[in-house]
């Protein structure tokens, strides 16, 4: 559907731009006229081509702009009607060529690639108790991709505190941005909700990796998450990655112990060593805060409002 729409848009645009194309070609011709020696006027357009032949000189001092050959400005002959038959059919047969052409065209498109990416897989060492955390994604496709994302965290030896799994579709909008839509299932905290997801992911100016996703739960709760990070190479293998994450809620959700507005902010600084770009252990520091009503819930539950931890983990893809 989108492809059809964009093709139509393109055709409309092409029509709208037709005068500009003509202008561009004129400018092009002018450019050559200026660079080269005074070129003879473009010969009249159209076949037969032989009529356009300039006298072969051969005696001219080549390399100094004789006004012959490529020194001449191009004409403005119209292109021929587009050709769609296969010239090779009459030598090798239409069936054999049709099959070979299909194979070749398929072979020159880029249908599908797949990868698993682990952004975070770490243990968090904190005076308040050690924990663990993961965040990763698997995808298959190219311009359009199927996504499977998961993230979660918990206390070492304790139960999983937060966990989710998300399946979605990612569509490239431009060279840097993807539109994403899908379904997210909470595992923790309970009650575990199911959410519809829509959002953007991509590379922002200054090469920030950015993800902005909005969710609507089966109970009509609106939430959103914004994630940004930047890879700063210190040496060829050593990369410092500052990272921030902001979580928002559209309303108070007492059952989930989440208050309206910005309810959790997190900042991290991780230093990784790329043994290979596919495998990079890291150490870092991570801060997170609950804010507003969420902080009140935490205090009421006897939980900490803010946490700090040294993190140790690995990042990579395969």
């Amino acid at each position: 559907m989108i492809r059809v729409a964009s093709a139509t848009a393109c055709a409309v645009l092409a029509l709208a731009c037709a005068p500009q194309i003509a202008v561009a070609q004129d400018e092009h011709a002018m450019h050559h006229g200026m660079v080269m020696d005074p070129a003879p006027a473009a010969p009249p357009a159209g076949p037969p081509p032989a009529e356009n032949a300039s006298a072969p000189d051969g005696t001219g001092d080549a390399g100094t702009g004789t006004g012959a050959g490529t020194d001449q400005a191009p004409g403005t002959a119209p292109p021929p009607a587009p050709v769609h038959d296969r010239a090779a059919d009459r030598f090798w047969g239409a069936d054999a060529m049709a099959h070979a052409e299909m194979t070749m065209m398929g072979g020159h498109s880029a249908p599908r690639y797949s990868a698993v990416r682990i952004d975070l897989a770490e243990i968090a060492l904190s005076p308040q108790g050690d924990g663990y955390r993961w965040e990763g994604e698997a995808w298959t496709g190219d311009v359009d991709r199927l996504l499977l994302r998961t993230r979660g965290e918990g206390q070492t030896g304790g139960r999983l505190e937060q966990g989710e799994i998300e399946a979605g579709w990612s569509h490239a909008l431009g060279p840097w941005w993807n539109l994403q839509a899908g379904v997210k299932q909470d595992i923790r905290p309970t009650p575990a909700r199911t959410h519809a997801m829509i959002g953007f992911e991509g590379l922002a100016p200054y090469r920030f990796d950015v993800q902005a996703l909005a969710y609507l739960s089966d109970k009509g709760q609106f939430t959103a998450r914004f994630e940004g990070s930047l890879d700063q190479r210190i040496t060829r293998r050593l990369v410092l990655q500052p990272r921030a994450e902001l979580n928002f809620a559209g309303s108070d959700m007492p059952a989930e112990r989440i208050g309206a507005g910005l309810w959790r902010a997190e900042m991290g600084l991780r230093l990784r060593y790329e043994i290979d770009r596919r495998f990079a252990p890291y150490v870092g520091y991570s801060w997170d805060w609950a804010t507003g009503r969420t902080a009140d819930y935490r205090r009421a539950d006897g939980d900490r409002v803010a946490n700090r931890a040294v993190v140790i983990g690995v990042r990579g893809w395969f």
Partner: peptide, 29 residues
């Protein structure tokens, strides 16, 4: 580079075909 011998076809081109070489490194397209 200058050809040692004169070019075989010295006609002026009848028209110009513009081809843009395009790509996106971040997507390897």
């Amino acid at each position: 580079l200058v050809s040692r011998v004169p070019n075989p076809d010295l006609r002026a081109p009848e028209r110009t075909i513009e081809v843009h070489l395009t790509g996106a490194m971040d997507r390897y397209m």
